[in-house]
Design a protein around this nucleic acid. Sequence first.
DNA 1: AGCCCTCGAGTTCC
DNA 2: CTCGAGGGCT
Length: 714
Amino acid sequence: MDRGDLGVKTMNRAQAAARLKWLAAEIAAHSARYYQADAPSISDAEFDALVRENSALEAAFPDLVQPDSPSSQVGAAPVPGFAKWRHARPMLSLDNGFSAHEALEFEARIRRFLSLPATATITFTAEAKIDGLSLSIRYEAGRMVSAATRGDGTEGENVTANARTIACIPPHLPEGVPDILEVRGEVFMDLADFQALNAAQAACGGKIFANPRNAAAGSLRQIDAGVTASRPLRFYAHGWGEMSAMPADTQFGMMKAIESWGFPVSDTLARVDGMAAVLARFEHLAARRATLGYDIDGLVSKVDSLALQERLGFVARAPRWAMAHKFAAERATTELLAIDIQVGRTGALTPVARLAPVNVGGVIVTNATLHNEDEIARKDVRPGDPVELQRAGDVIPQILRWVGDADAHAARAPFLYPDHCPDCGSLATREEGEAVRRCTGGLICPAQRYERLRHFVSRRAVDIDGLGGRSIEEFIALGWLDSPADLFRLHRHRDALLGREGWKQRSVANLLDAIDARRTVGLDRLLFGLGIRHVGEVTARDLARATVSSRGFLALLDTLVAHDPPPAPGETAEKYAKRIALERAQLINVAGVGPEVATALRDFWAEPHNRALVKDLLTEVTPADVILETRTSAVAGKTMVFTGTLSAMSRDEAKARAEALGARVAGSVSARTDLLVAGADAGSKRAKAEALGVAVISEEEWLAMQAEGDLPSG
DNA sequence: AGCCCTCGAGTTCC
DNA sequence: CTCGAGGGCT
């Protein structure tokens, strides 16, 4: 939400003039991106809202209308964007590391996960990490059928026509390639080509690109493939997606096969033994960096053996078997203008640094998070200080320290952290031992309500397309929207909405259709969307899988609330709280859900308002059951528990394998456990399983069972 | 009790 | 993306 904007009615003339100027610049920038099909940064609805606000202001202050007003320029039929493309295999991101230390940690972690001795040598591939954009190209029977950008990793944009114009991407492949084959790599632009392009653009008054990466992105995402064809784009393959047959059993072998099919592969690609050798390549690459002729931002190392890659698997959205070793971040100095406080959906007060605009590594930075109260104190940055910044990792700017004159710094007032919510004025408190200060306003805090609704409709939650912050704000102000269920009743305001500035037949229909499309939504998404403390995407999915249906989930919540044993005689309040929390975790019995999460769930459900909210929501929405993919394995659909010390694989790996075979992995043994795998020195869990008559197998038996259930990959 | 790994939450840039 | 904190192992 742009909290800096005032309502049209409350604005004076000077404010309106300033706002109009800002809107003109904003709309021009966004429409340039939109029409030139570079990445649009806001949704259509949000863009519409900007245009709408502009019109409203011009109506209120007709004498401020400028000849070059956006209202005189916008209005052509919007160019349809690219169609969405769902990746057959998700396109993942990589874990980043910035030091030799982190790289060696990465290697050590792999050894631990695989239970390898410290002396075992792991072979890696190493290659330059090109600063471009990822593309996944699909071939069927040797012919290119599609090409798509990464997008969010699951769904990208179909840019097939444009990719076909890139000279070094083969349109068809030689005989004998796998029938289905997806090659993934990086689209980029050489520095010399980038400079020539910008010079040509300047000459014809076209768009000037900030850096080669943006130029490549802008060129690939052209509506008119003819424009893409005129741009000097290059491509290097670095991986693959779906493959109907595997030509090799190592990363290096695969890349060589891909190269033999006619794809360019980076000449920096090498196979080396051990992380120390990867680090040597990194140093070598850093020295060569300036002479490569294109931008790179580091080096990528991958475990060479595909068998090991498969065993290592994934964490959230990144593989455990790969790492991006990044060059040191670029730094810059600017002035800290002010520190603003934002209120998140959980009430967390987060300080944001407002900075004098400064270029850091090709991007203009104006904001940076300061995380929390302690961080400000630790760095002792004060409004007015000159500060040193860097763009950490890939993008996020970070304030390193204040710089300049110490006396001047000392003369500036330290930032006073507010102890009341800047949005609703409620007391903001800090839990013992916690870093965040939270607004206690809860339901009455408008900022929290707004952020919760935004979370509910966000892509990873219920995913209502095209419902942006500005629309939510508008509907709240109109009194149409208070809780998530209200979203599904917005259609009752259809006529009123149609009468409003900027809402036309089509935009209203699109919004209502998008909402209707989510009347049936996965239990996991719905659960995540509720925004229960400590229940994020992964935990929500684990809980949904364990309870299968909304009925099962609600029953679990009821059980939690009903579990209300009295304190034992002489038990302190603290001990009692700890014990009952532990018991709640046992009632849930889902690996990864401990006392804290269990208590958060209970507290949520103990609140009558939340029960009413969920009940209301369920009158509008049908949660879809979350059923594990049933693969043909002996453990599919079974609830398993691991105990004792496993020798062939670590516990984490065992859990990951079991889940891949369709099993649920619980934390402890109960009557609902189907199978216990007992490693060496199994203790109480084994005894309990035997007492309950739960099947117990040894590690060897489990390995055999798992190998049987294994399906060929790909 | 201490340690390591993951996850959750909030944020930035385009 | 980074930081803090929860969960689960040793």
